[in-house]
Design a protein around this nucleic acid. Structure first.
Lengths: 207, 207
DNA sequence: TTGATTAGGAAACGATCATTTCCTAATCAT
DNA sequence: ATGATTAGGAAATGATCGTTTCCTAATCAA
């Protein structure tokens, strides 16, 4: 008898011995190592310890160190995007949505989370110049952030919660710089209060 | 006869074979390598090529790789501080001084200079967590930047060029984040126009 | 049960890297 | 001129790192 849904069966359980680890969970552990140490300083051994994998399994699952890094970045971007859109959805007006988004960035920039740093910011400063694939990822992530900011500004201008006279493009670029900078400054150890004050200050730009 | 000024003679020409390179010039070359590659990825060989020094001379002059890095950072901070205070001195009012300072940061964040990146931002994201000496350097550099911004804001409030109602501390922290973020975003390749627009936008915060 | 397939994991490999060693070269004081 | 001192530089060293190899273990299909 013909198997009418072979791809479904394979999706449910691929051939061979099953993995003993959750890829996403392992990548979350790798993310911590990469975030605080950067790409170059994170050794395979150190990654293996954090991910609870030996070098062999790690290479079998992700190809090479760069593969782990790219997968960790993709995982990070995916999780953050979901969290962000959840936050934005809670806002009623464009202004409210934007403030929630800025507050979301701020909440990652203080205390221990702030010290950990942002893997995307790290990638931008460390290797964006020497890895085209990675450079494209970073660039498109930044463009997405910027476009999201600009969209919220336009929404706010439409619903009257944001002054119509400021240019959405320039404002979005400025807020992009501000949020990325918060992650850099946050590496030196900042407080919740300080980062909240930055958000409050940024909101003044919307009049 | 007693040499009444031995320290002066030594300062003019120390004993032994003289150096065949200018330390500051070599550090400027090292700075380029460290800025674009970061600390870990910059190899001694690569540094030697850029600085036109062999490993031996490099170790004799700077101790080790970390010594080159710290010296390059100190050189960078010293040069930038001089350029900055020169720019600030040109401004008449507090507002004018502040705008010149922001424009100075912006001028390093676009085009090829922007792609090169900032060694201090790189150090903050890459190794600030694992090197106390370096962490202190980064922190004090950021604190100095922030204090300078705050001072200019207060000057502007005194001479009436900046609105008296905004809090200098929160504003300085925000501008610190903004300027550091410009260097991160600048790594992805931005235009003079974009970065100028960010400065213009930031100036709106001053009323 | 057997074969195919994939994961787990220890060990080894080859390359690279930071650092040291050791010799030569240049300068100054005597 | 000679000794002391420091720089220049090639070569070697020891460690580490990313990666591969190879064997065992687990799962499914037949």
């Amino acid at each position: 008898m013909l198997n009418l849904h072979p791809e479904k069966r394979i999706a449910e359980r691929p051939p061979g011995r099953p993995r003993e680890f959750e890829a996403d969970q392992a990548l979350d552990s790798a993310l911590v190592v990469f975030s605080e140490r950067g790409y170059q300083a994170a050794s395979i051994h150190e990654l293996g310890l954090a991910m609870k994998l030996t070098s062999g399994s790690l290479y079998k699952a992700f190809g090479d160190k760069r593969g782990v890094y790219l997968a960790a970045i993709d995982r990070y971007l995916s999780v953050r995007r979901r969290q962000r859109s959840d936050e934005i959805a809670k806002g009623a007006t464009g202004r409210d949505k934007l403030e929630r988004l800025l507050a979301f960035f701020a909440s990652s920039a203080w205390g221990e989370t702030g010290r950990l740093g942002c893997i995307v910011v790290g990638a931008a400063t460390e290797i964006a110049l020497f890895d085209q694939d990675l450079a494209d990822r970073i660039r498109s992530s930044f463009e997405r952030d910027e476009a999201e900011l600009e969209e919220l500004i336009r929404i706010g201008q439409s619903d009257g919660s944001i002054a119509p006279d400021s240019e959405p493009e320039a404002l979005a670029c400025s807020l992009l710089c501000l949020t990325k900078g918060m992650r850099v400054v946050g590496k030196t150890g900042r407080t919740h209060t300080e980062m909240n004050a930055v958000v409050t200050m940024a909101m003044k730009l919307l009049s």
